[in-house]
Design a protein around this nucleic acid. Structure first.
Length: 272
DNA sequence: CCAGCAGCCTGTGCGC
DNA sequence: TGCGCACAGGCTGCTG
């Protein structure tokens, strides 16, 4: 589920559910989820800490506790659920934070791709995961940043959009939607965009990401009752997953190919 | 520095 | 029904 709009949706839910709760115990059932420090330090340092706020940077969730920040990335299929401690965890549950109120904040991840790091509060933004992230796709994103990034950039514009250094939070679905809205072919080399196209692209990034957040994100494969999996932006998708369907502008069938090693949907006529 | 690709994992859907 | 393969909303680390 996780591109920025989905992560933001999860963040809002978690904020309501766990802020103010104290951590009684931490259980790690799949240690590769914990990137740093060691699993033992991760657990020990968090016991006794209280969740103060839940923030987000790009696709990363930032759980602020009394002294630390848990940096959490859901990757492809990570999810958080708040469940009662009596409710037995499934085989896809990998990290469990037991809370004072008898509930457990559980991290589930079928593919086990997700990662968590624990850092001291003052050092959070120096962490390698966050250090080189580009601007958020809102007013922070300026045209001069976009054009500086694209300058001399030989890779495809699709690869550029997926690069979190250009803009933080765009993933495969929104990259395709943004390029369709901008009328730009996904295989165009970054440096070939005219200033008009750069402007169009920047506007599309900001509007589409904003709309997707407002819609609560996109739910594609419907995993049963996954926490925060309630978005409706899938109803507003124009190209993603629409291969073979007619483009609403020109009636040409949408094409699906592979660009930057990712499934890529576009209109061969409208996107130049 | 950049681009391409394997690796990390499991599940699903398709063709045979 | 079973098998093998391709594919899936992401990132990191290695190679040339």
């Amino acid at each position: 589920m996780p591109e920025l709009p989905e992560v933001e949706n999860v963040r809002q839910g978690l904020e309501r559910l766990i802020v103010g709760q104290k951590i009684k115990a931490v259980n790690v059932l799949w240690s590769n989820i914990i990137k740093d420090p060691t699993v033992e330090d991760f657990k020990q340092n968090l016991i006794g800490e209280t969740f103060l706020s839940i923030n987000r940077r790009g696709k990363f969730l930032l759980f602020e506790t009394t002294d630390y920040i848990v940096i959490s990335h859901l990757r492809m299929e990570g999810k958080y659920k708040l469940e009662s401690e009596e409710h037995p965890p499934t085989k896809h549950t990998h990290v469990i934070f037991s809370l004072n109120n008898g509930k457990e904040l559980r991290y589930l991840d079928v593919r086990k791709f997700g990662k968590m790091s624990l850092v001291e509060k003052s050092k959070a933004y120096e962490h390698p995961s966050l250090r080189s992230l580009g601007p958020e796709p809102n007013e922070e994103l300026t045209l001069s940043h976009v054009s500086a990034f694209l300058r001399n950039r030989k890779r495809s514009i699709k690869a550029c959009l997926l690069d979190q250094k250009m803009v933080a939070g765009i993933g495969n679905i929104y990259a395709d939607e943004i390029l369709f809205a901008s009328g730009i072919h996904p295989e165009r080399q970054g440096h070939t965009l005219s200033s008009t196209e750069q402007k169009k692209l920047k506007e599309a990034i900001v509007t589409i990401m904003k709309k997707a957040v407002e819609a609560g994100g996109t739910t594609i494969r419907t995993y049963a009752n996954a926490f925060g999996d309630s978005g409706s932006f899938q109803n507003q998708l124009m190209v993603y997953g629409k291969e073979g369907e007619p483009c609403p502008n020109c009636q040409t069938a949408f094409i699906k190919t592979k660009v930057a090693q990712r499934g890529t949907h576009y209109c061969p006529l409208c996107q130049k």
